[in-house]
């Protein structure tokens, strides 16, 4: 596999992991009965979710634009 393919798949995986992690672990839990439900477990986790989306779709940019060495 070429370096291009590895990096692209890597970016998609990193993006996906960021999305899944921030949604299920980092962001506020799915509940409505306590103060802890109102705060994200990790602050700025929603921004990380968006970053995950951006990284995953940026892989297309990399795949298409990167120069062959």
């Amino acid at each position: 596999m070429t370096k291009r393919g590895v990096v692209t798949i890597g970016m998609i995986l990193v993006g996906a992991v960021l999305m899944v992690w921030s949604y299920f672990v980092g962001a506020a839990p799915w509940c409505a009965t306590g103060v802890e439900c109102s705060n994200p477990r990790v602050e700025w986790a929603p921004a990380l979710f968006v970053l995950g989306v951006v990284v995953a779709f940026s892989s297309a940019l990399y795949y298409s634009i990167a120069k062959d060495k």
Binding site: A27, A28, W30, C31, S38, N39, P40, P46, A47, F49
Partner: peptide, 19 residues
């Protein structure tokens, strides 16, 4: 970006739709 809660349907609107 700082506090958005996945439980709110707005999470999808702002994170998925808009971003």
């Amino acid at each position: 970006f700082r506090y958005a809660r996945p439980q709110s349907p707005f999470f999808g609107t702002f994170s998925l739709v808009i971003s």
